[in-house]
Simulated assay, not measured.
Amino acid sequence: MLKTMLNGLVLYGLRRLKEPSTWSGLTLGLTALGMHVSPELTGCIQTIGIGSAGLITFCLPDSFSR
């Protein structure tokens, strides 16, 4: 039963990785974590993170063909 549940969670996660919103969310989440690294780099980290999220959203299709 545990193996079935873990397989289901892995499949769920893999399906989510095919969605642009997942990649944008991960990028923005990592950007938020990076804001605590250095106060001097906060603006640069935010700009790179938000720009990366926008680029990911722009480049990836809304749905993938199988």
Rank of each mutant, 00 (worst) to 15 (best):
L17H: 05
W23A: 04
C59M: 15
E40V: 01
G49Y: 02
L11P: 03
I56T: 15
G54V: 10
F58H: 09
H36E: 01
R15D: 14
E40A: 08
L33V: 07
T4H: 12
T27H: 02
L55R: 04
P39W: 12
L55E: 11
R16M: 13
A53M: 01
L26R: 01
I48K: 02
Y12C: 07
I45R: 02
S21E: 13
K18C: 05
N7Y: 06
E19G: 02
E19Q: 10
G13K: 09
V10D: 12
T4S: 09
P20V: 03
M5N: 10
I48M: 05
W23L: 13
V37P: 02
L11M: 11
S24K: 10
G29R: 07
L60K: 05
S38P: 01
T47F: 09
I48S: 00
G8T: 12
T4R: 15
T47S: 14
L17R: 08
G8R: 14
L6T: 04
G34M: 04
T47K: 08
I56L: 15
T22L: 07
I50V: 15
T4L: 12
P61I: 14
G25D: 06
M1F: 06
G43L: 06
G8Y: 11
L9T: 09
G29E: 03
I50P: 01
G49M: 06
I48Y: 00
L55Y: 12
R66Q: 09
H36C: 02
L9N: 09
V10G: 04
T31M: 09
G51L: 09
I48P: 00
L26P: 02
G8A: 14
G13Q: 09
C59Q: 13
G49P: 04
R15G: 08
P39D: 07
M5L: 13
V10W: 15
L30F: 14
S24D: 03
R16K: 15
P61W: 14
S63P: 02
S65E: 06
L60Y: 11
S38M: 06
L55S: 14
R66A: 03
T31R: 01
L14F: 12
P20M: 04
C44I: 13
A32V: 13
G54K: 10
K18T: 03
K18W: 08
M35V: 03
T22Q: 05
L6S: 05
S38E: 14
I56H: 04
G13L: 07
K3C: 08
I56G: 01
V10P: 05
A53W: 05
L55M: 15
A32W: 05
Y12G: 04
A32G: 01
Q46K: 10
G51W: 05
L26C: 03
